[in-house]
Design a binder for these strands. Sequence first.
DNA 1: CGTAAAACCTGTAGTAACTACAGGTGCAAG
DNA 2: CTTGCACCTGTAGTTACTACAGGTTTTACG
Lengths: 140, 140
Amino acid sequence: MSQITPSRGLLIGELSRRTGVNIETIRYYERSGIMPKPKRSEGGHRLYNSEQLNRLAFIKRSRELGFSLKEVCGFLTLIDSDEMTCGEIHVRTMDHLTEVRQKIADLKKMERTLKVMAAQCSRGDTPDCPIVDDLYHLGS
Amino acid sequence: MSQITPSRGLLIGELSRRTGVNIETIRYYERSGIMPKPKRSEGGHRLYNSEQLNRLAFIKRSRELGFSLKEVCGFLTLIDSDEMTCGEIHVRTMDHLTEVRQKIADLKKMERTLKVMAAQCSRGDTPDCPIVDDLYHLGS
DNA sequence: CGTAAAACCTGTAGTAACTACAGGTGCAAG
DNA sequence: CTTGCACCTGTAGTTACTACAGGTTTTACG
């Protein structure tokens, strides 16, 4: 078994296992600046502390809720500063909720259209297909 | 006013206007192979015919319904061949419908979570925020 | 202690589906 | 004849990762 805490800190593999974030993704987050550059071991391996673990977990959860990395960055900047208020976070969350609801509405529209098209279809062996006819012409 | 049909065919700008597909996107579709290379005028301007207009309209409509370019490519290959049957098109449409429904389900789950989080929030001027607390820790 | 395997490192390129230039030509109207 | 718009090519940027290749460090085992 490999050492979980080499001298002081988690290796990237262990961080990955604990957060469920891919190793390559963690390094990408570092490159993109959303995760800080961690300390290194003698040999150059990344060593993470629990604050960084929490930060990565925050990013993961936020991404799962559909926030863009830029939005997550915005949250983190706010959190890191003294400027953060619960009200501000609430506004951003509600804005995002609106976007999510819009996406749901768009997809539902797609779903209805696809359902109608599929229902018109005879599913036969012929090369005539009302789905294709529907799609092939202009004007909605 | 510029000529709509220069000698025989639409210029890319007119094709763009009629289909609602961005000029740059049309050229990208040509590069990626999903649109054929059109004839050219003496001076090298692209000239499209009505078959190409219909093809582009098909791509547009399919993309709006959430099919990937690869899937659209699959449809077009099928349509171009003699192998196309209505049944085959139906299968692909239903597969796509399943994916769309899955996306809707995922987004609805997001929506519920965001709603619950936002509801817990006092929206106050304090730096304590239950949304942030929710997101900052591991374990669902 | 020696070595082999696992885990780590850097750097680059690929993915999807565009979009956005820069820098240059064609073409029609005044 | 020149102004200006529409067109051309080619390249680079976007989002959020993922996937190598080719090399080093660490750890485990005999």
